[in-house]
């Protein structure tokens, strides 16, 4: 990949018009809303957006209002990648007939439910076909729009309304699906993870995803105060802590070549700077039960799994 010809400075970004505007009805402190705002600041020109059913779709287009200043379409939950495929195909056909000039970018937004679970078939198909679009997964780790049900993106130990922490079961018993690695396995040109705590990194990666020819997948970590049960002011802090604890490391894979992003390189180069997962868990009441003596072991299990995944990632990045 050539060196980027763009740079994102705060001064430049605050001047850029809002394409995802105020007046949307996301909860106070919504992480995904931050993700969408940031990504829409990374666009390079005419852009069409499609949204899967989910929090961001619902809160941004409560009829007759819309928070979108770009052409936008929602059709269903499991098919946002097929929407993007259709839009991109239409644009190609129109270009062939010289109905427009230049480039029109296509961005698909979906939550974790719409990506890890019900939307993975359409996503996989679109990736295999090689449509030129950026798929953004805003991951708040459960079906928040419908009332905090567990998804394939929910982490181990989290209590949700369908994986409640009970007397014998400590919340979700399975581990989070490594969705970004699954997308790398599709051999698409660009896959990256990002956290809303590092806005420049989010913008850079979104822009890279738009610039590459073919499918790009951006997995954005976006905490949810309502579902994770923490004070609304802590959204960005938790998003940062997830990176610092290597719960959610930041990396990108350009044409399948993994590299750690600067924020995660710190933990790789100076392992003593890698914070313990417990720091992250204790800030969120979805993990509260893990601090009962009966479930104490789960915290060890979680730390071990995080370390194992981190070790695997370091190997992929040639940093082991």
């Amino acid at each position: 990949m050539t060196l980027p010809s763009w740079k994102f400075t705060a001064k430049e970004i605050v001047k850029k018009p809002e394409l995802f505007t105020s007046g949307h009805r996301a909860c106070a402190g919504c992480g995904p809303a931050i993700a969408l705002r940031q990504i829409m600041k990374a666009t390079r020109g005419p852009t069409i957006v499609t949204n899967a059913t989910g929090c961001m779709e619902v809160v941004s287009t409560i009829y007759p209002y819309t928070a979108w200043k770009v052409p936008w379409i929602h059709t269903a939950f499991e098919n946002v990648a097929a929407n993007a495929s259709g839009i991109e195909a239409a644009l190609k056909a129109m270009k062939r007939k010289e109905m427009y000039k230049g480039t029109i970018d296509v961005i698909a937004f979906a939550g974790d439910g719409g990506t890890f679970d019900i939307g993975i078939q359409a996503l996989s198909g679109a990736a295999e076909r090689g449509h030129d679009f950026l798929y953004v997964l805003y991951d708040n780790e459960a079906y928040m729009n419908t009332g905090i049900q567990r998804s394939g993106g929910t982490p181990h130990g989290a209590s949700t309304t369908t994986s409640p922490a009970g007397k014998v079961i400590p919340g979700k018993t399975q581990f989070k699906k490594p969705i970004a690695d699954i997308m790398v396995a599709h051999e698409i040109p660009y896959v990256a993870t990002a956290s809303i705590a590092y806005w420049q990194d989010v913008l850079m990666k979104a822009r890279k995803g738009l610039e590459v020819e073919g499918p790009a997948f951006l997995h954005v970590f976006a905490p949810c105060p309502r579902g994770w049960r923490y004070d609304t002011s802590k959204t960005v802090e938790i998003a940062r802590l997830a990176v610092e604890t290597c719960v959610f490391p930041l990396w990108e894979a350009v044409n399948g070549n993994y590299s750690l992003s600067p924020q995660s390189k710190i933990a790789a180069l100076k392992p003593d700077r890698k914070k313990p997962v417990i720091d992250y868990l204790k800030m969120q009441r979805r993990f509260r039960h893990l601090f009962n003596p009966s479930f104490e072991h789960e915290r060890i299990v979680i730390q071990e799994r995080i370390d194992k995944r981190w070790g695997k990632l370091l190997k992929k990045c040639d940093m082991a």
Partner: peptide, 22 residues
């Protein structure tokens, strides 16, 4: 532009989205 989708669900979705694009 011929899109050979991975399911009928996506086939109709792609047609719908393309149609909405004009």
């Amino acid at each position: 532009e011929f899109v050979c989708t991975e399911s009928e669900h996506s086939a109709l979705t792609a047609c719908l989205a393309a149609s909405a694009t004009g």
